[in-house]
Design a protein around this nucleic acid. Sequence first.
DNA 1: CCCTACCTTGCACGTTTGTGCACGCGGCTT
DNA 2: AAGCCGCGTGCACAAACGTGCAAGGTAGGG
Lengths: 330, 330
Amino acid sequence: MNEKHGPNPAEGAATVSDKTREALRAAHLYYMQDLTMDAIAHELHTSRSSVSRLLSHARASGLVEISIHSPHDLPSRIEQEILTRFGIVAHVVPVPDHASDVDRLDRVALSAARILGRFVDSNQVIGVAWGSTMSAMSRHLVPKSTHNTEIVQLNGAGNGRTTGIVYASELLRRFGDAFGARVQQFPVPAFFDDPATRRAFWRERSTQRLLDLQAGMDVAIFGLGSPFAEVPSHVYQGGYLDPADYDGLSREGAVGDVATVFYRADGSTDGIALNERATGPDFAVLRRAPRRICVVSGRAKLASLRGALAAHLITDLIVDEGTARALVEH
Amino acid sequence: MNEKHGPNPAEGAATVSDKTREALRAAHLYYMQDLTMDAIAHELHTSRSSVSRLLSHARASGLVEISIHSPHDLPSRIEQEILTRFGIVAHVVPVPDHASDVDRLDRVALSAARILGRFVDSNQVIGVAWGSTMSAMSRHLVPKSTHNTEIVQLNGAGNGRTTGIVYASELLRRFGDAFGARVQQFPVPAFFDDPATRRAFWRERSTQRLLDLQAGMDVAIFGLGSPFAEVPSHVYQGGYLDPADYDGLSREGAVGDVATVFYRADGSTDGIALNERATGPDFAVLRRAPRRICVVSGRAKLASLRGALAAHLITDLIVDEGTARALVEH
DNA sequence: CCCTACCTTGCACGTTTGTGCACGCGGCTT
DNA sequence: AAGCCGCGTGCACAAACGTGCAAGGTAGGG
């Protein structure tokens, strides 16, 4: 309801850098020297609670980075298997089999958000799709300061009448904030009603500028849609598609989509009529990005995932354990 | 009450890798997904205490790595200053000014041990000196598995009648264990009584082999001795040097030593008689190592540090804050 | 086969850490 | 000037965590 903007340039500049400096020192003392927060509070002439908060801040703002290395002599069997079978790097997120789908998605998204920092760097163009997975991720991003990096929206988000999902602009803004990057919105609906409108729009110079950015992406980040799964992705709930569309997709054998562009189990897209109205990048464009990070959770998306792999859309996969296991089981 | 779930009824060799695997999973759940230990215990079908121990193991064995990045737009003033003034990379360890010398040394050593992992890698020869600083470090090393790496003792350690300091062999063994590296002992006293003995010994083929290794070091790690400080380094306490030696050092203007080799404030070593009997590598040899990591704590070693800098012995410095500050103050 | 020594586990307790709340200090508005 | 508002602080309590200890289980040797 309220805007929490407030860089506060007046006295904020000194304060914020001061706080960071203290947080840095607290982090050193806590993580490098194993002091208790009490001891740190004493050294910093403040209270223990403030130290607790300072350390929270240090973690949340990426001053402290916690990474997990599996020893080289003990590689994850599944990740190894995925690498040899599909030629992509997998990050398998451990989630118990009995977890609910929403739990699973949250936990995968949280892990993904924390891994993401490794892929993002200065002077990059980063494409971000839009969906429930990306939305969950956006809430947990660990900031990392970069220069001259741009966040580009990959597909339109249509109007805002969604089911509690944050709007695309909010999502993009979170990515931009986390990395100190400029954000390029793509103010179009998820699907045009008429292919002709799309084509016309695509000829606009402002659209062209954005498409050019997309074509030069260094990193793309996206989830997968799976239109015929028991729990359809949220793109299919917002009223973006009507029964006729579904019939069409079904007839054409579509098994999933990436940023509103649909594909079949073998990765092909030709002849899927709905794609003429979609707003996401053509796969040929998408594949020009050297790193293409896909975040998936839930066995319901297995068919989608297989299709996306067949289409070579993925170079790095972040996936829950159950789905990963199902993927490598023949 | 227990043993409700026996995953591996028959086992033995698998237990250690099993434990690591579990620790890895626990670490993922704890550090990437922010679950509580309780929740993890439930997912792993064990008790909370076991999870606590599992996570301790994960940290202690280097499965989990915690690093601290100061943001690029907020570099530590002191580290920056040292870089421009001396051309070396400094890691300043925050320690309150009122800390005792032993505290200071412990805390710097702890930090240094945790930073060390960044410098160690496979297929390297790593020279390690011997002293109270290195001893303290050795107790906190974070394991990192490497292949074909060797730890080489830089200077002799004499007999074992030391003041509660672990013997050199123990110290070296700890380094070797931490990195899965072979250890090359150097079974000689810290100082020979007679320069001729040293020269003779140096001609031995077994000694030559070790000297060759030293000459090909990739990394050297050492503390600094400061013979004339209020609290002399432990090399000067073990009865290695007698009053005549001290007189000689004093006359020659020695301000410190690296691995038993003494130098003056300007970094020169020529004409310091004691060096003829020392067992550490000549500075010309030492300087062939591309990375030379020096760990220092306490203002008492400031003169030593200045001399070592003048001699260009250091490429990476790990130092407590007070000493760092004193170093850059003119 | 049994015994012993060692290792692992879970429990119980004390310590350490996270967080809602009330207070106090500016700054900004009226 | 007064008052409101936002922010940071410390307190107090609850939650989470670490660890000594004793019970049980395993391996290895007699």
